[in-house]
Write a protein that binds this DNA or RNA. Sequence first.
DNA 1: AAACTGCTCAACCGCGTAAGC
DNA 2: GGCTTACGCGGTTGAGCAGTT
Length: 329
Amino acid sequence: MEVKGRVSNSTGTIVQSEDEIDLRRGPWTVDEDLALINYIANHGEGRWNSLARSAGLKRTGKSCRLRWLNYLRPDVRRGNITLEEQLLILELHGRWGNRWSKIAQYLPGRTDNEIKNYWRTRVQKHAKQLKCDVNSKQFKDAMRYLWMPRLVERIQAAAATATAGSPTASASATTTITNNNNTTYNYNNNLNNSFEVHSGNMMLSPAIMNNNFGGSQSYTPENSSTGASSDSFGTQVSPVSELTQDYYNNVTVVNSNNNNNPNPDYYPQVQDQLSFLDCITSPSGLFSQQLDFQSMEPNTPWIQSNGDTYNGFWNVENMLLFQQLTDNM
DNA sequence: AAACTGCTCAACCGCGTAAGC
DNA sequence: GGCTTACGCGGTTGAGCAGTT
């Protein structure tokens, strides 16, 4: 797809500025991705307009920035949104609304775009099914009193299953992924480090969850609820992720600092960082409004047997619960 | 097998704001 | 203070895919 950049002058005549000649739009090609990755590896990011020109990309700086931040960054995390992430998104959206980038700060590796898409496609869909506005009190209460407690239950269950079922593995273990072309990628280098960093910075890291829910094992990639959930981090690799991974494994963009963070700039310490323990237990915590997860009756199935949280939630039973909830208000 | 429908998500757009001159 | 440029954010679009009829 290639479009010529065109603008109209004061008389309405279509003119073509030098900068807009051959300006490309639409999906990025592998070559473009490589050019961008290569350029940023050598020169760093920022100054996106000049970067686009210098890298020989016929793209706007804006487009380059978006492609890098949302897709090509080595630490961008792909795959399904995990249960912990779902819970966090629901809670943080309740707190901040559509402040996607702010919410994304608490989900390392996730982009604001991804969270926004998640909210629009999954959460808003259920509001639509319930015939109420996503910002209505009814729907917010349904999320708070039905959806979120069930998510916590699922997270606990996943943690318990992982504790019982899998031997503790070394955090430095290699994760090997083989794609359809039988190309193998070992996640024991930078990305594995970045994964550990993710777990360390993650507000709802499995370690935290275990601590809060009675688990005692230390966190490892294998026993993480990330792995136990339907999420496929580490098992679902997009072509471009492979490209980036391959590039970073073989062409080498090595971060040598000792904190294992490949690029600390991506995850600045959030000033008012939340404590999940506080969220659950503190009277001033996020979930403090008469919400007691531990005493919630797990009477209604939260998920279907296929593990699909969303499709299984708004079943008849929960719809009735929702009805009762709204009737009592 | 073809047509249709719904969903997902990458990419674009417009706007507000910060920074630099 | 005003202008320009760059950046970042949130809203929206549309291509591609999967599922259904």
